[in-house]
Amino acid sequence: MKTPLFPLKSVLCPKGRIPLQLFEPRYLDMLSECMKTDRGFVVVLIKEGDEVSGSCDFYNIGTYVRLIDFQKLESGLLGITVEGTSKVFLTHFSQGTDGLYSGRIEHLMEEEYLSLPDEYLELATLLEQLTRHPAIKALNMDIDYADGRQVGWRLVELLPLSKQEKQFLLELTDPFERLKQIEYLLTLMEQ
């Protein structure tokens, strides 16, 4: 069975949330079908191109998401909030006549819980500061700051890293290695 794909210019990790605005018929139809069948879709990072133009290239590892909220926005568009549940690997994908991408997915093994090592407590403090921003607070994420996976995932989403760096960090399967790489990238930013 094929799963709908939603290419974006941002990365979403497991347990992360992102607000989206839907107005194109293909995505409104996708959302309607997902709601009817109680299924989610996959958020994937765009490598090249522009999704709005109907043609883009994207990475083959993304995040399966579920709808958690929706409302009509003042602009008249449909606003939804989705939450990542698991990382997935795209094995095959195609684009329908309506422009909607879909693909076969394999759910990747969930990363093992990592109690945040003392050497990375500063990263949890940084994350707490970032989540004070009103736009992040509005997402109502339940973050366990003692969970090294969640600290790493949220920093991947929130830090001003390049999309290639974010994808690299998403694709890592070891939460300790992700924290190590984030710390290294922060050191480079400071220089």
Rank of each mutant, 00 (worst) to 15 (best):
residue 156 V to T: 10
residue 179 L to C: 09
residue 181 Q to F: 15
residue 180 K to Y: 15
residue 144 D to I: 00
residue 173 T to A: 15
residue 165 E to T: 05
residue 156 V to W: 00
residue 171 E to L: 05
residue 143 I to F: 06
residue 189 M to P: 02
residue 173 T to M: 11
residue 174 D to Y: 00
residue 173 T to P: 05
residue 152 G to R: 01
residue 143 I to G: 06
residue 172 L to C: 13
residue 176 F to Y: 15
residue 188 L to R: 05
residue 165 E to Y: 01
residue 184 Y to C: 11
residue 173 T to F: 13
residue 167 Q to L: 03
residue 164 Q to L: 11
residue 175 P to L: 12
residue 190 E to S: 13
residue 164 Q to N: 12
residue 185 L to N: 10
residue 188 L to V: 08
residue 183 E to P: 02
residue 166 K to F: 06
residue 187 T to E: 15
residue 182 I to H: 06
residue 164 Q to G: 08
residue 165 E to V: 08
residue 147 D to W: 07
residue 191 Q to Y: 05
residue 184 Y to M: 14
residue 147 D to I: 00
residue 191 Q to S: 12
residue 145 Y to D: 00
residue 183 E to Y: 03
residue 148 G to T: 06
residue 162 S to F: 14
residue 175 P to R: 05
residue 166 K to V: 09
residue 180 K to V: 10
residue 158 L to H: 00
residue 178 R to Y: 09
residue 150 Q to I: 02
residue 162 S to H: 07
residue 173 T to S: 15
residue 163 K to L: 15
residue 168 F to R: 04
residue 168 F to H: 10
residue 146 A to M: 12
residue 176 F to E: 15
residue 153 W to N: 09
residue 163 K to M: 13
residue 143 I to L: 08
residue 146 A to E: 12
residue 162 S to K: 03
residue 151 V to M: 06
residue 166 K to I: 08
residue 190 E to M: 14
residue 184 Y to T: 12
residue 174 D to E: 14
residue 161 L to S: 12
residue 158 L to G: 02
residue 163 K to P: 09
residue 170 L to Y: 03
residue 156 V to M: 04
residue 171 E to N: 09
residue 171 E to S: 12
residue 174 D to R: 00
residue 166 K to S: 11
residue 153 W to P: 01
residue 189 M to W: 10
residue 150 Q to R: 02
residue 178 R to D: 10
residue 144 D to H: 06
residue 143 I to H: 03
residue 153 W to Y: 13
residue 152 G to V: 08
residue 173 T to Y: 13
residue 144 D to S: 03
residue 173 T to H: 13
residue 178 R to A: 13
residue 145 Y to A: 00
residue 169 L to W: 01
residue 151 V to D: 09
residue 161 L to V: 09
residue 177 E to Y: 14
residue 164 Q to W: 09
residue 181 Q to K: 11
residue 173 T to W: 10
residue 183 E to F: 03
residue 166 K to R: 04
residue 165 E to L: 05
residue 159 L to Q: 03
residue 159 L to H: 02
residue 178 R to I: 09
residue 191 Q to G: 15
residue 189 M to T: 04
residue 155 L to G: 01
residue 177 E to T: 08
residue 183 E to H: 09
residue 189 M to L: 14
residue 154 R to G: 06
residue 179 L to N: 06
residue 182 I to R: 00
residue 167 Q to P: 01
residue 146 A to H: 09
residue 181 Q to S: 11
residue 183 E to S: 14
residue 183 E to Q: 13
residue 181 Q to E: 15
residue 155 L to T: 01
residue 173 T to K: 10
residue 169 L to D: 05
residue 187 T to A: 15
residue 171 E to H: 04
residue 156 V to F: 01
residue 172 L to I: 01
residue 171 E to P: 02
residue 187 T to W: 05
residue 179 L to R: 01
residue 144 D to N: 07
residue 172 L to Q: 12
residue 166 K to G: 12
residue 151 V to T: 05
residue 168 F to W: 07
residue 155 L to M: 03
residue 153 W to D: 07
residue 169 L to F: 04
residue 173 T to C: 11
residue 174 D to G: 10
residue 182 I to P: 03
residue 147 D to R: 04
residue 189 M to N: 12
residue 160 P to D: 09
residue 155 L to E: 10
residue 162 S to V: 07
residue 181 Q to G: 01
residue 173 T to N: 15
residue 185 L to W: 04
residue 168 F to L: 07
residue 149 R to E: 15
residue 158 L to D: 03
residue 154 R to V: 05
